[in-house]
Amino acid sequence: MRASGYERQKHNWYVEESWVVDAMLQAERPFQGRVMDPCCGGGTIPDTLVKHPSGASVQECLGADLIDRSNGRFRIGDYGITLAALKPDSVISNPPYGGEEKEFIETALAHTTDRVVVILRLAFLEGQKKKVWFEGKGLARVWVSSRRVSMPPGGLGVKAKNGSTAYAWFVFEHGYTGAYPALGLI
């Protein structure tokens, strides 16, 4: 059993609650063009974006996942392959954890033109090696959730518990050259 109280989920499928996606969409400037979640699971991020008022400026909202978790609604495949094939302008995602976060961000940046927005543990900011890695990646903003986020395992019908981990949305923006990202509470 993990500290969260949930058993480890195969393929790192944990479901973000729609309220935390909505909070980021409220804070962030509207997305335009093609927006994709290449690790969409059951589709929380694409579904929330389409319903949100800022979703009106989105030309196309795409989703994909390694495994079909949405009864055929989204493309199936590894994020590197689906990002290269679908070429979104922006990515919004709850990416795989467990050491894959940096690779995911780099891959998403390589296949987008606007920005990559990922929800990660706030502790992702920590570390000297990470500080060096952040340089040149265009980390423009970090939206820290003022509420604790719960991410229960997907596909098991498990309800969200009271979260115990601090999460934030990390916004990597193409062309951003500031020394430090702006921090904000959502």
Rank of each mutant, 00 (worst) to 15 (best):
A110K: 15
R2N: 06
E60L: 13
F124M: 06
V149C: 14
P38Q: 02
G43S: 11
R141D: 09
G41L: 00
L109R: 15
W13A: 04
A23E: 14
A123V: 03
K130V: 12
S4R: 12
K10I: 12
R141V: 01
V20K: 13
T44D: 06
E103M: 08
L156V: 00
M151R: 15
G99A: 06
A168N: 08
A123H: 06
I105A: 07
G178V: 09
S90M: 11
P152C: 13
L156R: 11
Y167P: 01
N94M: 05
L183R: 03
Q128Y: 05
E100I: 02
Y176D: 05
D47F: 12
A123L: 04
V144F: 03
N71R: 07
R148H: 06
H52E: 04
R29T: 07
R69P: 02
P53I: 03
F74N: 08
G41E: 00
E17G: 15
V20W: 08
K102C: 09
P53M: 12
G5D: 13
V116E: 14
G63M: 00
V118K: 12
F134Q: 14
W133I: 01
E101H: 11
T82P: 06
R75V: 13
V21W: 00
K137T: 12
F170K: 11
E100L: 13
P30L: 04
C39G: 03
K10F: 06
V50P: 01
A108M: 11
Y79L: 07
R29S: 10
S150W: 08
H11K: 08
G136M: 04
Q32I: 12
E101Q: 14
F31V: 02
V21E: 04
H174A: 10
I186K: 04
L156S: 05
K51L: 15
E28R: 02
D37F: 00
Q59P: 01
P96D: 13
G42P: 01
P46S: 09
Q32F: 11
E28D: 13
L66D: 06
E100A: 12
L86S: 08
I119N: 14
V91K: 14
E135C: 08
T82I: 00
A27G: 01
L86Y: 06
Y176L: 03
P181W: 00
E100N: 07
G178Q: 13
G41D: 00
W133T: 01
L49M: 11
G138H: 09
D89N: 14
V15H: 11
V50Y: 05
D114K: 15
G155V: 03
D37P: 00
R8S: 07
P53E: 14
D22S: 14
V58F: 10
G138L: 03
K51S: 15
D89P: 08
C39M: 12
S4G: 12
P153S: 09
P181N: 05
C61T: 13
K10R: 10
R34N: 05
A168F: 01
A3M: 07
V118C: 15
P30M: 04
A168T: 00
P96C: 12
V142M: 00
T113M: 05
N71H: 09
I105N: 08
W19P: 09
